[in-house]
Amino acid sequence: MQDFLQHLLNGISLGSIYALIALGYTMVYGILQLINFAHSDVYMVGAFAAYYVASLVGLQDSPGFSTLLVLLAASMVACSLLALAIERLAYRPLRKAPKLNILITAIGVSLFLQYFGQAVFGAEPKKFPAVLENKVLVSVAGVDVKTFDIAVLFITVVMMLVLNFIIFKTKLGKAMRAVSTNMKVASMMGVNTDRIIAFTFIVGSSLAGVGSVLVGMKYPSIDPLMGTLFGLKAFVAAVLGGIGSIPGAVLGGIIMGLSEEMVVAYLSSTYRDALAFGILIVILVFKPSGLLGKSQIEKV
């Protein structure tokens, strides 16, 4: 029982990070019907941005709250700028092209970033700066609640609340929802759609930036291909929850993290990665629209 609770906590903690990344996939999909394959590599660049900023200002080995804030800021800004550039240079020129063209471009951008990363950052793994000290804060019923878990959960919850506020309480959020329902009509109602799309990329990638710092904190080894598998799992989480649905991405992320943790704990760590694809296959066969996604009935 004690073991189970510990795994539960770890799973939720891992799942929150998946959720943060999954949100980026789902938001861009919601607005452009594009699976942004470059998202996972934007996340990778975020981790490296935090790494380089830390060594620039001498924060490699001084864990603490201020380090956390600096790294988060560095990563979020880097991810936003990169995503803006990708949107502007690679996706916007294709706005009127068939969806497949832009999808293939996304794969191209993803590969570009991976090899760019290997060329510029170097292919060998680097040690991510120490963000926080991982102390046992409290022990409840034999379960150790550590700093990392609390930090991950706290930051994720804050991010979700901020996101929720933006989407439901601000004019940008209203415009985002309008654009995701019908871009053309939104434009005719005075919404500057290009700006809203750029903003969506900024929000989604900032969340990926946050995710990259949290991952770096928990698993402090980063390399230019770190985004591939992690991003793929986050993508599966988004599909599981129903791509395009924001609560779906969160739910999908948590389920993904929990099931991964449980599989490793009770079966074998060999199945860790197989699980994600197993889930993907099952969901595509039995409920392709995802848990919270709306199934669309095509009119003929």
């Binding site: 004019k171 415009a175 929802r177 309008a178 919404v191």
Partner: peptide
């Protein structure tokens, strides 16, 4: 008809006006 179908009636109206906020 091309309303923002999944959005509330009130917000449909508000979206048009956000440009003036």
């Amino acid at each position: 008809i091309r309303l923002f179908k999944e959005i509330s009636v009130l917000e449909n109206v508000m979206i048009g006006a956000t440009q003036h906020q």
